[in-house]
């Protein structure tokens, strides 16, 4: 098993889009009770339609898997439509990471998606 493959370690050590936005349209965060990890995500959408992500940042503490997952996810969703984000599934995240995950680590990998979808849904409502 090559869970800690080069690209994951790279995103973990040098997370992209890490931090906060100056004027986010929406924020969300989620807590993983088993390890105390917390991931927060902030999003800006294009003002005209509010249907496409203009910019995104994540912050928080996490393991290599959750940090890499958040970092890769931020890259993936900038410019993406809100509808497509809601349609993202666990399999999309596993494909994105390109690695095998044990059941306990799947939770770590999916935490950023959970936060992201929570943010997007509250944006709509």
């Amino acid at each position: 098993m090559d869970l800690y493959r080069e690209i994951i370690l790279d995103h973990y050590k040098h997370p992209r889009n890490f931090g906060v936005l100056e004027t986010p349209d929406v924020k969300a965060s989620e807590y993983n009770a088993t390890c105390g990890d917390r991931i927060s995500i902030e999003l800006c959408v294009y003002a005209s339609t509010r249907k496409r992500i203009k910019d995104a940042r994540f912050s928080g503490d996490g393991c290599a898997i959750s940090v890499a997952s958040a970092s890769m996810l931020m890259e993936k969703i900038i410019g993406m439509g809100v509808k497509d984000i809601i349609a993202l599934t666990a399999n999309d995240i596993i494909d994105m990471l390109g690695t095998e995950l044990t059941p306990s680590r799947t939770k770590c990998a999916l935490l950023p998606l959970e936060v992201l979808q929570k943010a997007v849904l509250s944006l709509q409502s």
Binding site: M1, L3, Y4, C35, D37, D61, G62, C63, A64, I65, T102, R105, C108
Partner: peptide
């Protein structure tokens, strides 16, 4: 270093 990563690598 995150304990989950420590344990995961040791498990190898």
């Amino acid at each position: 270093l995150h304990p989950h990563d420590i344990a995961q690598i040791l498990d190898e």
